[in-house]
Amino acid sequence: MLDVETIDSILAKFPQPKGNLIAILHEVQNHYRYLPEEELRYISKRTGVPITQIYSIVNFYNRFSLKPKGKHVICVCLGTACHVKGAEKVINEVKMKLNIDVGETTDDMKYTLEEVRCIGACSLAPAVVVDDTTYGKVTPKEMASILAKYK
């Protein structure tokens, strides 16, 4: 269902939507945690930006997602500092426990697994962000108990 009200209120913050499309998409994604197609079409209609142009942006930038996300987003850092400190094992633990690959969501829509290249918490490597909380110096064992906290 197209949620006109939400989009209108986001668009209202940008008197000049042209030139602020990336900012608008950030807000839309913050709200829905992904970019629903119907909403994107509506934005195109309202702003006059062709839908193809919107898609070219959405597809170029890694942060934008066209797929709905699970209730909890587990984001494992695979930046260099985390890589040399064994982030691979941490992400494998999540893959094994949840039986999903990077970019996938569990069938019950509970968890989405993502990877990121450095969140700037390198002194806490390996780092994992679940929703808005950053966990540092995560071992595979700890990863399992962190997962258990998010139901």
Partner: peptide
């Protein structure tokens, strides 16, 4: 101006293209 997770946007011309609201 917020980036959106593209490393190449740190490069000067790409950064400017991104501020212009394009890939």
């Amino acid at each position: 101006k917020l980036g959106a997770g593209a490393f190449v946007c740190g490069e000067s011309t790409a950064l400017m293209t991104s501020i212009e609201d394009k890939p």
